[in-house]
Amino acid sequence: MATTIHEPPQIDHPHTDDFSNGGGRNLIPADGDLRLTIDHSPPPTSSAIWVVVFAVSMMFAAFTSALFVRKGSSLDWQSFSLPSILYFTTLVLIASSVTLEIARRRITAFMRGFQTGVENPARWLYVTLFLGLVFVAGQYVAWLQLRAEGLYLATNPSSSFFYLLTVTHALHVLGGLGGIIYILSKLHRGILRRNQLVASARYWHFMDVLWIYLLLLLLMKL
């Protein structure tokens, strides 16, 4: 009744693709008879980073809706002006995104072998790392300024939300810095994969966009 058409093609090892640890599904099907779907999936790191971006977005969406509800629910909301250092830190963060993009391109080119022998591709990563630290330090200065003004976490819902949003964001930025350090260490050990670099870069840019969103939110609503 049934007929065996051929020996099952076995794959020795799925991870032969250079920079991707995507599944064997990326391989082109060997047989024409079967209804195989050719579907080039990205390596898991890049879908994973979208998962992270989505989860973090949901979290800040929850905070945002809390802010709107809380502001609408009562009359005790006191506005205050944002510490001006925040504009400086915003610029720093944007600059860090730019430097990271430069670093990403250079490292990618370096890995492809286009620019062998050129300057240390890690340099721009260090610049990014430095700018990231400056950003977090700047946020810290902003909190100190508010404290000096007598605005603590529990002083008013506006200050509560300010601390809540900025601290949560800063913690996520620290996570991104951890990612960059991880990339650096992999780079130095020569085991960096491109998708890891791309994923960290995406996360970092996301932190950037998230911060701009938060700044606008705080500017308009606080």
Binding site: P14, G23, D39, P42, P44
Partner: peptide, 10 residues
């Protein structure tokens, strides 16, 4: 999404 084996469509 990414680790499906060969032939494993959604």
């Amino acid at each position: 999404l990414d680790l499906r084996t060969k032939g494993m469509s959604l």
